[in-house]
Amino acid sequence: MNKLFFKIFTLTIGFSFLYFPILTLIAYSFNDNKRVMVWKGFSFRWYKELFQNEQILEAFYTSLKIASLSATFATIMGVMIGFSLTRISKIPARPFFIFLSSSPLVMPEIILGLSLLLFFISSNHIIGFPSSKGQLTVLISHITFSVAFVAVIIQSRLSSYDKNIEEAAQDLGTIPNMIFWKVTAPVILPAILSGWLLAFTLSLDDLVVASFTTGPGANTLPIVVFSKVRLGLSPEVNALSAIIMLIVILAAISIYLINRSNIKK
């Protein structure tokens, strides 16, 4: 029983540490006081102000747009890399390709951001593209660092994938051009989806790279939030945190339930 006690003790302390700050933030989002930490009473005041704050709403919209586009392009290219590296042996300068597709994983974001910004400025000088920094440059940057993450997920799925099923499909009469769509794609679909989701989250969460590569009219949500909380506290951000936590928790629960019903079947 000593062991069980130690286990419950460890898990309780561990999960309290993970959740205590988040839950406090949510609790204080209902505080009817401009001074964040002095409790005055329960109210939805900051939620109302949040939904009237055009700057935040616009940034939220920008972030969603960039994140979904970046995730989609990163997934397409990640799948291409995954297939190239596991299926195609004749790639010119293959080690260099492997280096390129895995280095963004270990590149500190501050260096990535700096290098991309300097690149965009130079490229604007030389060929006039991109004409200015903005959503396009943030998008390009996000695709660049997300590709590597998606590629890793796809590669690990493909390496444990039984190629015989493609031959089986051919044997059963599937024409070669359709095999990818009818067999391969459905099998690696979970990996593709989790790759997309990861790329989406990475983009939505990124502050540093976006801060370097952004320009007028392309303030993402983290940039706006950071500007609000860099020096002080903001009750509106508390409310925003609560909403984001709610979305994440709902998403997590629904994924859990879907998984569970799949297992039961």
């Binding site: 993970l18 959740y19 700050p21 988040i22 406090t24 933030l25 204080y28 964040v36 930490m37 989250t201 939505l204 969460d205 502050l207 983290p222 939030v225 950071f226 909380v229 506290l233 951000v237 508390n238 925003l240 945190s241 984001i244 936590m245 994440v248 998403a251 997590a252």
Partner: peptide, 15 residues
């Protein structure tokens, strides 16, 4: 916590 915003989790400690 892995999914929820990095920035907001840092902010929580500031609070």
């Amino acid at each position: 916590p892995f999914w929820s915003s990095f920035l907001l989790r840092v902010y929580a400690w500031k609070v």
